[in-house]
Amino acid sequence: MVTPTVRPHSWSPGPRRTKYERWVEILEACVWEIRTQSWLMRQLGMKTQLMKEDLSFLLDAELLEQMDEPQEGIYEFKTTEKGREALSQFYKLVTQFFAKS
């Protein structure tokens, strides 16, 4: 997968999101930089329980990795190569859709 060279736009969360949308947003947010759980919650406008569920899935699936041991209870995450590939599939879907439009 080609790795983008610019950090993404910091977006505001929409009024509602399905879990698939939240997964894409988490993966994309962590592609560029290591992110803390609180940063993700704030930027994506997600509640704690929902964030835990999503992170749990992404970590179990090895799409996201947790960086080292948490210090002072701060967890940090980064998108794995597998996660980048999944994200790449999503980008292809977007490109295909607009190419047909």
Partner: peptide, 11 residues
């Protein structure tokens, strides 16, 4: 420069 803001736009 390559971008990924497209995801935010789509959502």
């Amino acid at each position: 420069q390559l971008v990924t803001g497209l995801t935010s736009y789509v959502f």
